[in-house]
Amino acid sequence: MLPARLPQMPEVWRLESKPHKFCPGCGHGIVLKCLGEAVEELGLVDRTVFACDIGCSLLAWDFFNLDTVQTHHGRTLPVLAGLKRVRPELVVVAYMGDGGAYAIGAQHLVASAGRDDPVTVIVVNNTVYAMTGGQMAPTTLPEEKTETTPYGRRVEENGPSLRGPELVASIASPGAYVARGSVARVRQLKGFIKKGLRAQVEGGHLAFIEALSTCPTNWRTNARETWRFLEEKMHKHFPLGEYAPAQAVREEGGGAQPPRKS
C-alpha cells in the first residue's frame, strides 16, 4: 500500500521501485528528479532510452518508467553511442559517476566529445568512488581524505582534482552543450539538463552536464557538514555554469589534404 500522500515525484519515476535505494543524504535522487521532470516537460518519455553505469549510478537501473540498460563501469557512453547511430529518433541519456566518466571511461568520453556523439551525458560528481567504499576519484579535492588518501590527497603524488566540463569543452564541437550544476542549485541544474536534452534532440549534438553531488556516507559528514563541503569546497573548486565548447581550429590552406611542397 502506498501512503495517502505521496511526496512530489515526476510521473516518469517508477513507483514500484520507490523508495529508492540511495543512501540518506545522497544527491542522486535530486539529479534523477531533475532529469525525470526535464524528460517529462520536453515530452520525451516515449522515446528516451536511459543507461546507467556501474557504481552508485547502477542503482538507477529500475528507477524510471523508461527503457533502461545497465552497462559496465565506464562503458555507458559507447553503448549509447552505438545505439544512437542506428536509432537516431531515440533520445539517449548516459548516467554515470565521476570515476566512470573521468577514470576508467575517460577514453570513451574523449572519443564521444571528439565525434560530437548526440548523447546527453550526466555525470554525478561526489569526489569519491562511493559504491566501492570511498576511494580517491580523479575529482577528489586536494587534501581531501578518502580510503586511499587517508592523509589527504597530495597533489604532488596524485595530481590536482580533474575538472570534467572544462576538459570536455576544450575538445567539444561547436553546438555541443557543456555545463556544471549542483544539487544545491536545483532549478539551475534542471535547466542545464533540459538544455542538454534539447542539444541532442534539436541540434544532434553531445551534451555534457556534471552535477556536483553529496556523499555523506563516505565523506563521514552530518547534514550541515555535508552541505558545507558541497557549497563551500566543491562549488569553489568546480565553478558552476555553462562552458562554451572551444571552436574548431580553422586549418590554414583548407581541407584535410597534406600541404604540397612547392
Binding site: P78, V79, G82, R85, A111
Partner: peptide, 12 residues
C-alpha cells in the same frame, strides 16, 4: 568501445 558500441546497436 568497438564491443560496447556493437552491443548498443544490438540493443537497438
Amino acid at each position: 568501445a568497438a564491443g560496447f558500441t556493437t552491443l548498443g546497436a544490438v540493443l537497438a
